[in-house]
């Protein structure tokens, strides 16, 4: 299969990963490699374990057993902060800090890392432009912005430090369809300028088809199908995949 790339090319590799929450087994001996420089979409219904899978990449969750290699190495448990600075993270509903302005939300970590004012301002302006945000949002608090604008700022924040990888946890799902299309375009433009390895979690298989190079369908912690979006749509491997396709058709 196309995703069975060599570990050296993979940006993330799960090797025999098991994870439970109490009595609930989420993953049992899961193995998966995600290609570098491409966008992989993890698709599944609620409870399929897709968010947990994503959070094991930036160590918000730890596997009970097995290992997760990121950038070809085990996650450095004693340098988690530096490690996480290399990974952009955006969530559904944007998760902006309500007490900070749009600018401060996006630039907070850069500031803590001691970036110069000039460098911060330059990168911030760059991102605003890339996300087609008007300059006057910069000094406003999140609650004064539209849902679409907040979501774009969430992406700006994820991209601020020029990360080596992006983790996107349904960042497009809490906005209306028209706004969502605008977000897709912005995201695609950014990826065209400089492709970043991206792991996108979504329940919307059509979104996955549009944005991802590789599609992984997850059902209750098991991979039921993976491959290029066209292949998956052309030949669904199970009734579950068919249902996912039908639900958004």
């Amino acid at each position: 299969m196309s995703i069975k790339t060599q570990p050296s090319d993979a940006c993330v590799t799960f090797c025999g990963v098991s994870k439970s929450f109490g009595d609930l087994v989420v993953f049992d001996d899961l193995s998966l490699a995600l290609p570098g420089g491409q966008t992989t979409a993890i698709v599944g219904a609620s409870g399929s374990g897709k968010t947990t899978l994503l959070q094991m990449v930036n160590a918000l969750e730890r596997p009970d057993s097995g290992s997760v290699l990121v950038f070809g190495e085990p996650i450095p448990q004693h340098q988690l902060q530096q490690f996480r600075h290399r990974i952009g993270y955006a969530v559904q509903g944007a998760g902006l800090f309500p007490h900070l302005s749009a600018r401060d939300n996006v630039t907070l970590v850069a500031r803590l890392l001691g970036w110069s004012e000039q460098r911060i301002q330059q990168r911030f302006d760059e991102l605003l432009q890339a996300m087609a945000l008007p300059a006057d949002v910069a000094d406003r608090p999140p609650r004064e912005l539209s849902g679409g604008q907040q979501q774009r700022l969430g992406l700006c924040r994820a991209l601020m430090l020029n990360p080596d990888m992006l983790l996107l946890d349904e960042p497009f799902s809490a906005v209306d369809p028209v706004t969502r299309l605008g977000l897709y375009e912005r995201f695609e433009e950014v990826q065209q300028v400089q492709a970043v390895s991206t792991l996108l979690v979504t329940h919307d298989i059509r979104e996955a088809r549009r944005l991802a190079d590789v599609l992984v369908v997850l059902d209750q912690g098991r991979i039921v199908q993976s491959g290029s979006p066209d292949d998956v749509f052309a030949d669904p491997a199970s009734p579950y995949v068919e249902r996912l396709i039908a639900s958004v058709a």
């Binding site: 902060q81 530096q82 490690f83 996480r84 993270y89 509903g93 998760g95 800090f97 970590v109």
Partner: peptide, 20 residues
């Protein structure tokens, strides 16, 4: 959610307290 985001952004525990 905000706490999770702040952790994922690479804020230390002290920074999470101070800034969030």
């Amino acid at each position: 959610t905000l706490v999770r985001v702040s952790e994922a952004l690479g804020l230390s525990r002290w920074q999470q307290l101070r800034y969030l």
